[in-house]
Write a protein that binds this DNA or RNA. Structure first.
Lengths: 126, 126
DNA sequence: GTAGGATCTGACGTTGACGTCAGAGATACA
DNA sequence: TGTATCTCTGACGTCAACGTCAGATCCTAC
């Protein structure tokens, strides 16, 4: 069965992809379920991935980390790959970027607030 | 019963606090449950708050927004109020501040990545 | 004193990105 | 050929910060 696959030697199975990308096997299945990641299947249904899936998974993680949800990630993944985007895509991208900027401003404010308390605390400790 | 309360005139009930602080009534009860917010109770069990509860609730929101959980917020609230902190508190504060800094770095990276794609998209559209 | 809104205490529901488990088939290696 | 490990598909569990609902109680205004 294995030799019926094309380019088997160059491909990896889900466990190795999980290891290389630093996520769980469950997460990879979830990404596929959400339409964020595709895989070739062997005749018996086993998933096989090419090397570039590693970067793709890492990108998914990064976008999730920035607070985007599955739907948004699915929408913008194509133009992250291709570098091409329609006008509406560009708007979406800009919206998300602005959201991230706003989030960073909030975080900066909170950090400054913490810093103030820390400095006060050090000053009080004399 | 009402005239058994002290300083009733200066205090507000939960609905008004929710309105002034911009959160839900349910959220305020949850904060109390988590030990983040206290209230005086009337003989019949109604919650009453002073004006400064508004700022306290907003601070809770800000800290939640920065990704801190209830336990951490409960731990650092005292020194946010008093400006005084023990050595271990200062460490906790610094840890959280560093976490926020790290988070901001991640966000900046993602934002730059989105910006690159946006600029590529605009360039392609000629 | 009574209608109507505000508040009370449980207690179950929600959401998203997975974790975890069960049972069965697939693969790799001695 | 055996067997240890990996992978498969459901499907239910988790966690945090609340949302929502029920039924009872409270407060305010007329």
């Amino acid at each position: 069965m294995g030799d019926m696959m094309v380019r088997t030697g160059e491909m990896m199975r889900i466990g190795e992809l999980a290891g290389q990308a630093g996520v769980s096997v469950r997460a990879l299945r979830y990404y596929e379920e959400q339409g964020l990641l595709t895989s070739e299947r062997s005749a018996s249904g086993q998933r096989y991935y090419t090397e570039d899936a590693v970067d793709r998974v890492r990108l998914i993680q990064v976008l999730y980390g920035a607070g985007l949800n599955s739907n948004t990630v699915r929408d913008i993944m194509p133009c992250m790959d291709s570098g091409m985007a329609s006008t509406s895509m560009l708007e979406l991208l800009a919206t998300e970027r602005d959201r991230i900027d706003e989030r960073m401003r909030e975080l900066a404010e909170t950090r400054d607030r913490l810093t103030t308390v820390i400095e006060q605390g050090h000053a009080t400790r004399d």
